[in-house]
Structure formats: C-alpha cells, structure tokens
C-alpha cells in the first residue's frame, strides 16, 4: 500500500515537472527543429548552442514584446496593488459592512471565464475608443490582476494585530502617520508579494489582449502565440525557458515574502 502511494506521488510530481524540464535542454539545440537530435542525445557539444537565445535577444519583434510586457505589467501591477492594498485593508477593517459581498465583487474577475470578459471588454472599449490602446489594456489587466493582489495582501491583513494601530493612536499618532510607521512596515512584504503576483498575472494574460490589443501592443505571450501558429522555431523554446526562470523568481521572491509576512504578524496568543 505504502509503495503504491509512493509511486503514485512520484508519478504525480513527474507529471507536473517533466513537461517543463523537457524543453529546457531542447532550447539549447543547435538545430532548426523542436526535437532532440541524435547529437543532443549523445551529449555531443556540437548538438548544443545558445544561438536561439541570441536570436531572441536580438530580434526586434521579441524586444518589442518584452518592452510591451514590462510596460503593461508594471502599469497594471502598480494600479492593482495600490487599489488592492486599500481594498484589502478595507476588507479587514472592523467597520466595513457587507464584507462578503465586496469580497465576491473583487474575486469576480477570477471566476468569470476570460473569453467572456474579453468579449465584454471588446464591446465596451469600442464605444470608449480604448481598443488598441495601452490605457485600455492596462485597465483590463488591472481588473484581472487586482484579485491576486487583494488575496495576497488580505491574508496578511487578517493576521494583522489592530491593537498596534489602537496603541499608536492612543499615543497621539494620526491615522496617516500610523499607517506609514506601523501598518505599512508590517504589511510591506505582503504588498510587495501582491505586486509581484499581479505583475505575473498580467504577463500571463493573452486572451484579452488578443481581443482588445493592436499589433503595436503585442506582449511576450502574444508573440509566442504568433510563433506557435506561424513559424515554429526553437526560439520559442528559449522564451519558454526564460519564462520558467521568471516563474522561479516569482516563487522565490513572492512566496518567500508572503510567508514571511504571515509569520511576522501572527498575534501571539
């Protein structure tokens, strides 16, 4: 029984990890195609090269996609994190009425199918003249990324000890000063984690951009989509490998910060 469980668990982890690990060596191929050549399997150095990474990093198409992803991701993450931090504080504030309703409203962008959201935004943005604009995409990504920021920051706020705020105000600090010197430093790791996760959410998004974006706004995933449909080359594997690296950074930074913020504020009871 135990051995069956062990094997099942190992297979489960392999299912999660192997598809990603399989493309990493392949991205270093010296060939033109997306499969392992005999030279690669024989570990012949001639089978490997970094030429596809050079190709990506010198391609105007990919550099434009990176620039757009950064611009849109940073813009959306900034707005989502600011609004999300305020909302997360509001949701843990004792005086707020109908918290369940607000939580549901804020989580809605995660629940509604993305293709339905894309349809709705395309119809609405047509009237607002936001189709094919950075503003439109940043607004859309703010809506999509905000729930992620709120969930992350709220988890930390729920463990926040409001007695500290009460103590500060008893000592004469005004609310803004209290926020700046007491609340913010304690919640800051969660806010940074929320911002990182919000950025990652924007970087991942492709369906809405496909509907409301123009060619000039193409991001990394859109450029990958073009690659998958048109000229399949190992360059796309190099990009995918770099995105796996990006995910690793998100996990190391984001999850560490999130865990730290949860650990610090746990009230001692």
């Amino acid at each position: 029984m135990k051995i069956v469980f062990r094997i099942w668990v190992v297979l489960g982890f392999c299912f999660l990890a192997l598809p990603l690990l399989a493309i990493i060596p392949l991205s270093f191929t010296s060939g033109q195609y997306m499969y392992y050549t005999p030279e690669m399997l024989a570990l012949d150095p001639a089978g490997y090269s970094t030429k596809w990474y050079t190709a990506v990093l010198t391609s105007p198409d990919w550099l434009m996609a990176v620039k757009n992803s950064l611009l849109i991701g940073l813009g959306a993450a900034a707005v989502a994190t600011i609004c999300g931090t305020l909302a997360a504080i509001g949701l843990s504030w004792a005086g707020t009425p109908a918290k369940g309703l607000w939580t549901m409203l804020i989580l809605l962008p995660q629940i509604v199918p993305i293709v339905v959201i894309a349809g709705g935004l395309f119809a609405a943005f047509g009237d607002l003249r936001l189709i094919g604009t950075y503003t439109g995409i940043i607004i859309a990504h703010t809506v999509l990324a905000a729930p992620v920021a709120v969930i992350t920051i709220r988890a930390s706020m729920d463990r926040f000890d409001w007695n500290l705020v009460a103590a500060a105000s008893t000592l004469g600090a005004n609310p803004l000063y209290t926020f700046r010197t007491v609340t913010l430093p304690l919640v800051r790791p969660a806010i940074i984690a929320g911002a990182i996760f919000a950025f990652a959410t924007s970087l991942d998004e492709v369906v809405v951009i496909q509907f409301i974006g123009a060619y000039q706004q193409k991001t990394i995933p859109i450029q990958m989509l073009i690659g998958l449909r048109e000229h399949l080359s190992p360059a796309i594997l190099a990009v995918a490998t770099m995105l796996i690296g990006f995910a690793l950074v998100v996990i190391l930074l984001g999850e560490t910060l999130r865990r730290r913020s949860l650990a610090i504020e746990t009230p001692k009871k």
């Binding site: 305020l86 509001g90 707020t96 409203l105 809605l108 959201i117 607004i139």
Partner: peptide
Amino acid sequence: GLALIAPLALVIVLFLILPL
C-alpha cells in the same frame, strides 16, 4: 471602510460588471 474599498470596487464595476 467603504472609502478604502471604493477605488477597486469602482474599477471592477466600471470595467467588468457593466461591460459584462
């Protein structure tokens, strides 16, 4: 409390609920 939630709620109502 409501003022803290308002900015995000407004963005979601304007750019998600109404379009939907």
